[in-house]
Nucleic acid binder design. Structure first.
Length: 543
RNA sequence: GCGCCCGUAGCUCAACUGGAUAGAGCAACUGCCUUCUAAGCAGUAGGUUACAGGUUCGAGCCCUGUCGGGCGUACCA
């Protein structure tokens, strides 16, 4: 319908004003239902170049418009010069029928068909369990990946980690100290160690497996390696509970072993963009508008994290992805321009790297902001949260707000809210429909074709129109990387259904009407189920 | 100091990236269950979109400045 209108409008404009450079015709759904189904503002945008009042242009345009009366019921000029289009009811029924035929594929698009996408997210180093602080990253990344899949892309999910840095050494030592303590040695945990109880658990498993074999070798790699293994197991179990399955875990160390790091250094050097000073190797970021140059290799010979970051992105693009998407919090925003600059220098198309930056989550506990620290072990893990509220509520909570705004996560409220949490509003709509279906199946019999035009009630019309918007919102959420748009939409659909539930009945109605209504509800259930699937949230048949 | 993000109802947040009368959920108040799930529906109340200018047919959204908050600004990750 959208394309059809665009087409006839452009055509009319061409006939009216042959000399004019055609503007892009924008159609949008008016916020207010009385304003029709779709509206365009072309008349207003043309007011200036044509030096005519917008309403006059709109009138000329409407008069020359060639349209099929079977598709459009009415065209009006309103306000400062909007042209409002009203669809013929027939169009609505045909479209609904089409949606019903698609069933669980309804809403799938082909916008990114044939494209290979990679989404890199979570990427927490294995120093401790995932906390609610990681939750937003994990859920956003996975859901954006699902959205890309839904619009046709082939998507890989990747977890990038580093097990070689200072923090990991501290981790290994923390385990070693706990190990010694458990075996009766008087050793103090050094300042800055990991204090969490899980460290003691890891030490305990080491004792079970090896007794006191390593009591005099606190520097033995087994401490770090065991910790890493146990913690990674824990992390992937947590992700699994949240319906997140990674395709690959990429170790930063591979970039050193496969030569990517050296390769990047060499190629940057060939472009004359690096130099040595004070024993360190610098990247001339000033030539890209930054105030200072950036250190790539410290005077100690150790690279800064920026160098592997660059190499990692180059490596990802070399692996053949059309687009690589990073999900990260506002604190990492600074690295992004450097990586992009470097990739540009290395000859990559910078548009192949895309970033979703989300604002921080403020944890509120006992009514006060709560600063978490993995090291100091004052944190709430995602597992603990899911024990309380389940994974549906957890996912929903992180998705319901725009990534660009700060998210306040009140632990107490999330735990309390349980049943009255907004996610239940959506699930309830689905369960309620399924319940009706079960009842109807037992008591009513339908034969013959469904007669959709029997759906005439105001709330039925509204519902039908809402259902037909689903594909639009999937695309919108995917392309903007803003899953909350889909949530807002599903909320509207659920509200429309709940209203329908009160306005219209099925059991006790005349059979043909009941049959048509069941068809409509099938559509609603489909949209709710498909939408919740995209969000990684269960659509229960009963609650 | 400089850079990025944010500031919308008492609270938490929307507003499809410049459209028509700024909307939901909590919290408050009022109604609606002998009929398909009241985890619901209908209604009342709540706003100078932080402030001051500017751009244009039109601004919560764009530009400038001010105030307030967050994050950066490391030879830390």
């Amino acid at each position: 319908m959208n394309d059809y209108l665009k087409h006839i409008i452009s055509e009319a404009l061409q006939r009216l004003y042959p000399d004019l450079e055609l503007p892009e015709v924008v159609l949008e759904k008016p916020r207010i239902a009385e304003h029709g189904d779709l509206a365009t503002n072309v008349a207003m945008t043309l007011a200036k170049p044509l030096r005519k009042p917008p309403r006059a242009i709109a009138e000329e345009l409407v008069n020359t418009l060639n349209y099929d009366a079977g598709q459009l019921e009415g065209i009006e000029i309103a306000g400062p010069g909007f042209i409002n289009f009203r669809f013929a009811p027939n169009w609505l029924y045909t479209a609904l029928k089409g949606a019903l035929e698609q069933g669980e594929t309804y809403g799938k698009g082909r916008q990114l068909a044939g494209k290979r996408y990679q989404v890199e997210f979570v990427s927490a180093n294995p120093t401790g369990p995932l906390t609610v602080g990681h939750g937003r990253n994990a859920v956003l990344g996975d859901t954006v990946a699902r959205l890309y899949e839904w619009v046709g892309a082939d998507v890989d999910r990747e977890y990038y980690f580093n097990n070689a840095g200072r923090q990991m050494r501290v981790l290994g030592n923390s385990v070693a100290v706990r190990y010694q303590q458990l075996l009766g040695r008087e050793v103090d945990l050094p300042e800055g160690s990991y204090e969490g109880e899980y460290i003691v658990d890891i030490a305990r498993t080491l004792i079970e497996e090896h007794k006191d074999a390593f009591i005099d070798q606190p520097d033995h790699l087994i401490f770090k390696e065991t910790a890493e293994r146990v913690i990674f197991d824990d992390i992937s179990r947590t992700l699994d509970r949240m319906n997140i399955r990674m395709n690959t875990y990429f170790n930063e160390n591979d970039l050193y072993e496969n030569g990517s790091i050296d390769d990047v250094l060499k190629r940057l050097d060939e472009k004359g963009l690096t130099y040595k000073e004070d024993g360190a190797l610098w990247f001339k970021t000033t030539s890209f508008g930054k105030e200072k140059d950036t250190v790539l290799v410290k005077s100690s010979g150790e690279p800064t994290y920026r160098l592997p970051d660059i190499a990692y992105h180059a490596h990802k693009l070399d692996r053949g992805y059309d687009v690589c998407v990073d999900i990260f919090g506002a604190d990492h925003i600074a690295t992004y321009p450097d990586v992009l600059s470097a990739l540009g220098v290395l000859g990559y198309d910078q548009n192949r790297v895309d970033v979703l930056v989300y604002q921080f989550v403020t944890i509120v506990m006992d009514g006060k902001p709560f600063k978490m620290s993995t090291r100091k072990a004052n944190f709430v893990t995602l597992d603990e949260l899911m024990d309380e509220v389940g994974s549906d509520v957890t996912r929903f909570f992180f998705l319901m707000r725009s990534p660009g705004t700060h998210l306040e996560f009140d632990i107490a409220q999330a735990k309390e809210s349980g049943e009255k949490n907004p996610v239940f509003y959506l699930q309830y709509a689905h369960a309620r429909i399924k319940s009706i279906m079960r009842k109807v199946e037992e008591t009513m019999q339908f034969d013959g074709e469904v007669d959709l035009p029997l759906l005439q009630h105001e709330t039925e019309i509204k519902l039908m129109k809402d259902l037909l918007d689903f594909p639009h919102w999937v695309i919108s959420a995917a392309m903007s990387k803003e899953p909350h748009r889909l949530i807002n939409y599903l909320n509207d659909v659920a509200a429309g259904f709940h209203k329908f539930y009160h306005d219209c009945r099925i059991m006790g109605e005349e059979a043909k009407l009941a049959q048509a209504r069941i068809a409509l509800l099938t559509g609603v259930a489909t949209v709710m189920a498909n939408g919740l699937t995209i969000l990684g949230i269960d659509a229960p048949d009963r609650m």
